[in-house]
Design a binder for these strands. Structure first.
Length: 162
DNA sequence: GCCAACGTTGGC
DNA sequence: GCCAACGTTGGC
């Protein structure tokens, strides 16, 4: 039976809002609040349980890859879209036809030191096509090529087998 | 369907 | 706090 190869991702979060330390404490979390169609489509259509992702700290000092997470659920409707008290409330989304989907992710590893955006840019020649170093790339959930994921994990001294 | 205006992201 | 880049909205 053909098995889908593991895919690799990058999840952005502002550490002031939710950091990898928060995820390490919680063990797993809903990746909620994504309100971009491209990012939603990746979670809804392209992720599978067991995929690995980088946890990327945006709007941080310094910004960079802080560790590794694993996708640990199938996609399902983001409950925050139906919660009037949530910042992510979307009054135009219908329960019987939810607009925003998410997956759960679990903490795998926090790097001893982040691989900073500066480092990624400095080694751009080895990371051709990596979205997070592309000009103006704002997508909050991004695909990462396996070769790039392996390299960055190695630079971080990751203990996780990727 | 075009595109200007607007809001958001995110590095700096 | 600034602002470039980008996505979305809405008038036409």
């Amino acid at each position: 039976m053909a098995r889908r190869a593991r895919a690799y991702w990058l999840f952005k979060s502002e550490p002031d809002v939710y950091s990898i330390d928060d995820l390490a404490r919680d063990r797993r979390t809903m990746w909620d609040g994504v309100r971009n169609y491209q990012a939603r489509n990746l979670m809804r259509d392209s992720m599978a349980v067991g995929d690995l992702g980088f946890f990327y700290h945006s709007n941080a000092s310094p910004p960079g890859v802080a560790g590794i997470v694993r996708v640990c659920s199938a996609p399902y409707a983001d409950p925050s879209q139906f919660d009037p008290a949530s910042d992510y409330h979307d009054p135009t989304s219908r329960v019987d036809e939810p607009r925003w989907m998410l997956v759960d992710v679990e903490h795998v590893e926090t790097f001893d030191a982040p691989v900073t955006l500066d480092t990624l840019k400095a080694r751009a020649a080895e990371l051709e096509g990596l979205m997070v170093i592309a000009r103006g790339s704002r997508l909050s959930v991004q695909p990462v090529e396996r070769a790039h994921f392996v390299k960055i994990a190695k630079w971080a001294g990751a203990r996780t087998k990727v």
